[in-house]
Amino acid sequence: MLCYTDIIIMKCMQYIRVTPLLLGLMLGATATFGAASSTNFKIDSDQIDAGGDVATSTNFKLEGTIGQFVTGSLESASFTTSSGGAAGSSGGSSGENQVTPVVSTLYFAYEDYGTALGFSEGITPSLTTTTIYVYGTVVDQNGAGTITNVTSTLYRSSLGETCTPDIFSCYQPATACSITPITATASHYACQYDISAYADATDTVGTYPSEYWTARVAVFDTSNFTSYTTNDIEMNSVAAFTLATSTIAFDQMTLGATTTASTSKSIELLQAGNIAADIMLSSFQNLTCSQAGFIPKENLKWSIYNVDYTHASSTSFSSTPVRAFLNVPRKIDSITPTGTTFFNLGIPEQGLGGTCTGAIILNMIPAQ
């Protein structure tokens, strides 16, 4: 049965109206349309004219804008639809009311079925790979078994879903998204992402504070009908370094001696977060010696330059954290930025002996 009452046949730039019954004879098959009305719809045929025999037409083209999917069996037909059906496909068998599958829900979590992360709560990368799940429900009223595929992309908002995958701003799932039927018409899907510590930060102190991250999820069915939805979330900034060494070991020194630029020690800090970062240095304890006495923490000094103990830029440790202004840039390619902090030591002139040990604190903070 044809639901349209105002179909137009076009031949030689003339418009001739025909009845639904006449159109049915012309097609030689039954077509089922999912909408009650249509605009801008036409049928072309080399064998149809105002007075011709329409019962044996085999060469025609059906095209136009249809409010919903067209289903049915048509010969030599091509379609353009507004709901995502593949061009040249009828989208189902004759008599079936084919519908488009939809992505009903889309959540972010650190595990499948996990507690959903809110937009402002965001994703916080760890210093290694962080696993994030984009999960939810897809629905197809023709049955959950007709859902054939779910795809996804996670990207910084300004890039779009066609971005090129990298560790900074664009991700594809680590493996194919899983699909698990949960009701007659619905399935649970889960797409696992392995997020780098270097993923672009979009929070207020991040590199892209006016942007956010978007997950796009698309669902497909056996007729290749498809739809998609998106959801957004912040990527939190992380100021972090890894240290080339965790120990500062000075050479043997005599009472009253101080280090110089040639005998100072250093620690290299490797960028491990997703924003330009700095450090604040402090110490809450003196260096205790194994045989006698101690070295005051103020006798241990730091600098971002390789200088002597007595140099003006060499700063004594205290219990109050002091910003170094090291300002190591964020990682943007295969090269990992680094920064170096230098340390000098002054030995008291008397009252101590043995091996002296202490501890310092490095706090990682956003660069200024």
Rank of each mutant, 00 (worst) to 15 (best):
T204V: 15
T226D: 04
S262F: 08
I279N: 12
A240Q: 08
V238G: 07
K265Q: 14
V238P: 04
T183A: 10
T260F: 03
M235F: 00
I267G: 01
S223V: 11
T245H: 13
M280S: 15
I267T: 05
A239K: 00
H188P: 05
E211N: 10
R216S: 11
D251L: 14
D200C: 03
A277I: 08
A197T: 08
A197V: 07
A215E: 04
V238F: 04
I279G: 14
A240S: 13
N224P: 09
A184N: 12
Y228T: 07
L243T: 08
S223H: 14
A190V: 01
A244C: 10
Q285S: 11
S246Q: 14
T207P: 05
T247D: 14
A276Y: 11
A277R: 05
I233R: 05
E211L: 09
D278T: 00
K265D: 11
A186R: 06
T180N: 13
K265L: 08
T229G: 14
W213P: 01
S283W: 08
D251Q: 15
D200K: 04
T180K: 13
T260W: 02
I267S: 02
S264Q: 07
T180F: 11
V205W: 06
G273F: 01
F241V: 07
A240C: 09
Y208L: 12
A186E: 12
D203M: 05
F241L: 06
Y212C: 13
T263Q: 01
T214I: 15
I275K: 02
R216C: 10
M253Y: 04
D251A: 15
G256K: 03
Y193R: 03
E234K: 15
A261V: 11
S262E: 09
A215I: 09
D278G: 00
E234T: 13
I195W: 02
T214E: 12
A261T: 12
A261E: 09
A201C: 01
T229S: 15
D200W: 05
S178F: 02
N274M: 06
S282I: 03
A215N: 05
F250A: 00
I195S: 03
I195V: 11
S262K: 06
A184Y: 09
D221H: 05
D251C: 12
F284T: 15
